[in-house]
Design a protein around this nucleic acid. Sequence first.
DNA 1: GTCGTCTGTGTAAACGATTACAAGAACGAT
DNA 2: ATCGTTCTTGTAATCGTTTACACAGACGAC
Lengths: 359, 359
Amino acid sequence: MSRPTIAAVARAAGVSVASVSRVLNGLPATEEMAERVQRAVAELGYVPDSRARSLKVGRTFQLTLAVADVGNPVYVTMMRAVEEVVSAAGYRLVVTTTGPDVVDEVALVRGMARGYADGLVISPLRVDDDLIKSIQECDVPVVVAGNVPARAGVDTVRANSPKGMLLAVEHLLTTQRHKVAFVNGPVDTVPGTARSKGFTDAMKANSLNPVAQVEADDFTFAAGREAGRRLLDQLGLETTQPSAEGARAPGGEASSPSSFPAAGGGGIDAVIAANDLLAVGVMHELAARGLRVPDDVAVIGMDDSELAEQSFPPLTSVNLGSAERGRRAAELLLARIEDDTRTPRRIVVQPSLSVRRSS
Amino acid sequence: MSRPTIAAVARAAGVSVASVSRVLNGLPATEEMAERVQRAVAELGYVPDSRARSLKVGRTFQLTLAVADVGNPVYVTMMRAVEEVVSAAGYRLVVTTTGPDVVDEVALVRGMARGYADGLVISPLRVDDDLIKSIQECDVPVVVAGNVPARAGVDTVRANSPKGMLLAVEHLLTTQRHKVAFVNGPVDTVPGTARSKGFTDAMKANSLNPVAQVEADDFTFAAGREAGRRLLDQLGLETTQPSAEGARAPGGEASSPSSFPAAGGGGIDAVIAANDLLAVGVMHELAARGLRVPDDVAVIGMDDSELAEQSFPPLTSVNLGSAERGRRAAELLLARIEDDTRTPRRIVVQPSLSVRRSS
DNA sequence: GTCGTCTGTGTAAACGATTACAAGAACGAT
DNA sequence: ATCGTTCTTGTAATCGTTTACACAGACGAC
């Protein structure tokens, strides 16, 4: 026996389908009518079919959040924020993951035309003209949590990486660190380029020269660890521990306990990573070479995700406002659903620094 | 101008809607017909409406995965596995989060009757009769990634926590640790009770007495840290560091460097946590009190999530097979969608131990 | 008593696709 | 030439809702 339809309910209650629909949607009806319908609904266990409903009314009351990698803790922060505001507005949030490829992002945006949801928040890792075009042509509202050119004419809310980089560099200066290396993510990504530029600018602004700079293959822990390996190799730092024993604690007793910053750092006394995951990867590699964090080298991450407090030592991280970005993006989306003619807004949320023990 | 419908395409191509639908679905048609339709489709940028389609054909080609907490890294492992299987089968995966409350889980399952998706994989934290009933009555296939009673008669794939606990305890014995404490999650959750029982049984089987046992409020990092605090307080361990300076590294130089296990552990030389997040929380608290991991106390987590390798020191963790559980759950779901009459299967996947440096 | 609201209910037409069925065209066999 | 296949295409019904419209009864005002 299949699901009861509204017609079955109408029959059971001895009324018309229109009446059933009306009481279910809270439109005026007599006491008796309401009661008969309620009873029939309860009896049959009727639940309206959202597909039919949304076909008719043209809305699904679902919103989609698309992220590149569910394993990146910055997205869980953002996800939580988005969830909170959209569910308060009576929408269901569904999350889908696109993977790192731009073509998959484009496919996803195009797919929204099938009517899966009433709106989309997308946080794209890579952006090209196809993606922008697909967003512009998309017939459901889209807001981008990230950086796309202003000429795209879409609602965006993005972080201020350059400012964030400035905070990081200045913090290092205040704590007497001058020899800083940078571990970036893939430079063909939007955050990758932004943070690269932000880093060089911030260094320049403080008349510092980067000691070294490497690019990870990905914004992941494994890539960070690998990039850290390349970085330290490049600086001529041999692994001090036999690999059998593995790494020592970052704050451990390796090298001289009284050593001043930079004593064992092989030419660096700080590294900034484009991402918390990368930062943690780097910390592991530092530890594997017997370098202490923060004693020998300070490490600063970006995103200030949950991972930053969970890592050891807890990671100083640039808070790029992922929660606020999520919240604002969701609000923008709701506003645009309300009124599609409003002129696109470009919100940028300001960073702050969460100082923890890694610096 | 709104989205073009199939009727618009038919008009533009000068053919009937049936023909358009047919070529779009790959049914036989003449060369010329196919070409005319394709052209019109391309010209108008037509994309079929999935709501209308699924209303008619009765399938959405979407599958839902519901998890309690997106911040728990064990779910990202599972999510990845599920995603892989279902997308290979031509389904879209959407993820929703239920929160820790059982009533929200019930609401979600009931809501599936609205036809959001063709099937559901749910990993419930708490299970009660309402939830079981809702799953049984659900008119779309549901598979549970977790433990529900056999009498429920639903497809399940679950972990073998008792066996996992055995692995953990035996590993500790092999490494000469006998004074072990247990940090559990909330005992009113399914994993909470399973792991509690698993722990006591495993200890008994090795004729060990637990030194202490605490229950965290939640399966989160913060709750783990707090539970660790209670545990160590209970053992009479004062914080050795002034709070201003904060914690030391778990492998740091606090207490005598030559100390043998248990030297500074205040009556314990190992703690098993029900979860990687809890384990990491406990490690932080240990560090805050100047206890070294693994020198003073070994720590073992469960789930072997990405966090286990990211933590410092890397966490020895019981691999409860979350990836395989995800994969099997997805396969079960696909099979049941194929044939709803098959008798429910109850798969249990076996654990293994990932030994890392925390033990 | 008649007329004009006003309310509540029912009938039927959408929404945008798929698909059963019928009808026409083409073609070979008789 | 006629008939029967086969193949392609079109017409219209259908999925389960919502909602515009019509309609009937109640009610107050004149």
